[in-house]
Design a protein around this nucleic acid. Structure first.
Lengths: 200, 200
DNA sequence: AACATATTTAACCATTTGGTTAAACTTATA
DNA sequence: TATAAGTTTAACCAAATGGTTAAATATGTT
């Protein structure tokens, strides 16, 4: 295990990500972030002027690391159902590596002071999916449905377990590993569901 | 329109519900709740000793008003698919009347200081659904699947649009009424989806 | 070495916030 | 009407919190 020395700026961003993800914007304390980063509070304000600025940096970084990967998938010239299967695999994989991200993003867009952050989300992606659906529908390869409703369902099915994770852990008396295994299983189950929904 | 004079306690609970739902626990201010209730802060502490106590009262009241109605539905002796259809109708209806509730509950159970609140949720309901599924599966009336995965999907499909509402409003350039109509439509669409998933 | 620049810290400040106190006002009841 | 109990308020308090300042310490450059 080679210890790589992070720069102070990187240490701060890493700590801020951890704390903001765990405690939310309002629940996070600058002192807390400083402690986790192993520095003091004034240094935090030296690097990132304010809590708001720091939060925006963290949010941007997470979004950038998360969504772009998804976009490419839909450019490929393969059947719509296969695209959705690939989406499910890729998305669930990202969620397994970033289990707190959904609540983080949803809280941000629902926060009265942070609703402008909606503009940072890749909403074109959903249009891409809808367009891709219609192409395939005209070919008679998929059942008739409202693509907007389908996308909401798809997202909901993928994301929900991560939002409700504490409830599920309690319900199944499970630990993190068991949860991850359940999510791995889930990938197959969801692929099955969407096939049933989409196949004419 | 007959104006009904609410008691101070009722006014406080109503205001607290509004503020906690909108701003979350950490984002809510006792002064804010007092203002909305049209009283002053000391009176708030006279009726409900602390922010924590008040929050718990609001949480309990919302949970009580929300979940019990769902339980009865599964006692009826009708086909499993019909039970799920009735669940979708009832649940979406409750969500339309309480659009902020999902984020409120999910934030609460994910909050490090509030995870004990998980115990207040009706997790037996999901066991009831699972049991109901197996009875029907033995009769060969439903496809083979993992009921836990199915329930997560069902909940996710119902809840997700309400969590992502600000994003959807922006995406569709829609207002609240349009959103509600989209959700009414969604009831039929979801009933269709679960039929496809469950029918052998 | 000398100088400038970047980094780090302890001490401090103003505001916000949950919560308290003591006094005043209502209401009902003996 | 006197008294007790419940209700309401203004003023206050201590702790927490985001943010600032000025001085100290490294680091690199000439």
């Amino acid at each position: 295990m080679t210890e790589i020395e992070l720069s102070t700026e990187e240490k701060i961003l890493k700590a801020a990500e951890e704390v903001f993800m765990r405690d939310g914007y309002d629940g996070s304390r600058m002192q807390d972030i400083a402690d986790v980063a192993g520095i003091n509070k004034a240094l935090l304000h030296y690097y990132f002027r304010s809590k708001d600025k720091l939060f925006e940096k963290v949010f941007d970084a997470k979004i950038q690391s998360f969504f772009p990967k998804m976009g490419e998938k839909f450019s490929q010239d393969i059947p719509f159902v296969d695209k959705i299967h690939i989406f499910i695999e890729g998305y669930m994989d990202l969620l397994l590596k970033n289990p707190y991200l959904p609540l983080f993003v949803l809280n941000t867009v629902n926060n009265k002071d942070k609703s402008a952050f909606i503009k940072k989300l890749p909403i074109e992606l959903s249009r891409q999916v809808a367009q891709s659906y219609y192409v395939e529908f005209k070919k008679g390869n998929v059942r008739e449905l409202n693509p907007a409703q389908f996308i909401m369902s798809l997202m909901g099915m993928c994301i929900f377990p991560f939002l409700a994770k504490p409830i599920l852990l309690d319900m199944f008396k499970a630990d993190n590993d068991t949860f991850d295994k359940l999510m791995e299983e889930r990938i197959q189950e969801l692929k099955h569901y969407v096939t049933l929904i989409l196949t004419p």
